[in-house]
């Protein structure tokens, strides 16, 4: 039994790693295509049919590029930083149920690596640790733009962890559990949480943008003012790891939002599983959509939004939820 469990877990880990690192690559393709269509362009078209093999071309380029470690950087930290981003993104995936359990060759498969009963806390904590990648990379780079990006990363991390935690506190109070599977079960009988907690949903969504560093809050690596931020000194696959971590994080946070607020995979039928994938696709698309439509905010505006708007609203939301539940 022990050995079977171990083998099953290892297989699950390998499958998740393969699927999501591939998806991270294809995510860049989708991003380029969607942005292009929204800006009346065509996007990548030349490599393969409709540019589909662009991902492979980019991968080959990143893998074969020279890996430069500039003089003056703190070499060990500089080398570790991208690994932290990519690794923590995939570590967070351990507690996410990607699909309802299904039977494969008479063997019941639960598509979740570790069903720990504090899933949400674990996922958010590990995703928070993921911001150590930009921070360390920025501080070790000996580059002023990278340092500015690292400072912004620290500020975003410290402030938006608060919003994330407070906003999902109200749904957690309603469900009474921290496991994503319990959330799913709760929503089968009681309807989607988004209808009971619309404020928490929107707050969590906004915080998800800050945590993944996507466009309205894209200030950690803001191309037009601080070059590439923490990624300025990186080249080749080390830079690629940052990108993989970012895109994998986008997918995982889309899963988390769908599971927490939008009913997850429902009763576990095939339709429910497809619905979950559809919701995840929508949230991923929304990340790209906002990048085409919205401007970036300044760091001080981001802090203002967090501490003066979102946090009070989150606290009021918790208080009201508590009163209603009593």
């Amino acid at each position: 039994m022990e050995t079977a469990y171990l083998i099953e877990t290892v297989i699950k880990i390998v499958v998740i790693l393969l699927i999501f690192s591939a998806l991270a690559g294809i995510g860049t393709y989708f991003e380029r295509k969607v942005l292009a269509f929204m800006q009346r362009r065509l996007g990548p078209m030349n490599v393969g049919p409709f540019g589909l093999l662009q991902v492979a071309a980019d991968g080959i380029k990143l893998f074969t590029k020279e890996d430069i470690v500039p003089s003056g950087v703190v070499a060990r930290i500089f080398k570790i930083a991208p690994v932290i981003t990519a690794a923590t993104a995939f570590m967070a995936a351990a507690a996410i149920p990607f699909l309802p359990s299904f039977t494969l060759f008479g063997y019941e498969v639960h598509p979740i690596v570790a069903d720990i009963n504090i899933g949400i806390l674990y996922i958010l904590g590990i995703m928070g640790v993921g911001l150590y990648g930009p921070l360390l990379g920025g501080m070790a780079s000996a580059n002023k733009f990278a340092l500015i990006s690292a400072a912004r990363g620290a500020a975003v991390f410290i402030s938006y962890e608060v919003v994330t935690g407070l906003s999902i506190l109200a749904p957690i109070m309603m469900v009474g559990s921290l496991s994503l599977i319990d959330f799913n079960e709760y929503q089968i009988s009681n309807g989607w949480i988004v209808f009971a907690q619309p404020v928490a949903f929107i707050l969590f969504w906004i915080a998800a943008f800050a945590e993944t560093g996507r466009t309205p809050f894209h200030l950690i690596a803001n191309d037009h003012e601080i070059i590439d931020g923490f990624g300025t000194e990186y080249s080749g696959m080390r830079w690629g790891l940052f990108a993989i971590g970012e895109y994998a994080n986008m997918f995982f946070i889309s899963f988390v939002i769908s599971l927490l607020f939008l009913g997850g995979y429902g009763d576990g039928s095939l339709l429910g599983a497809l619905a979950l994938l559809g919701k995840v696709a929508f949230f991923f698309f929304f990340f790209l959509w906002t990048r085409a439509a919205w401007p970036d905010v300044r760091p001080d505006q981001l802090m203002w939004l967090c501490w003066k708007v979102l946090m009070p609203i989150a606290v009021i939301n918790i208080v009201i939820t508590g009163i209603v539940m009593m």
Binding site: L121, G128, V129, L131, Y132, M139, A151, A154, E161, G165
Partner: peptide, 19 residues
């Protein structure tokens, strides 16, 4: 999980001071 959340945030503040 609380250990991870709390201490990663706390050390992040130390990084800010170090910076």
């Amino acid at each position: 999980a609380v250990q991870i959340v709390v201490y990663s945030g706390a050390v992040m503040a130390l990084y800010a001071f170090g910076m």
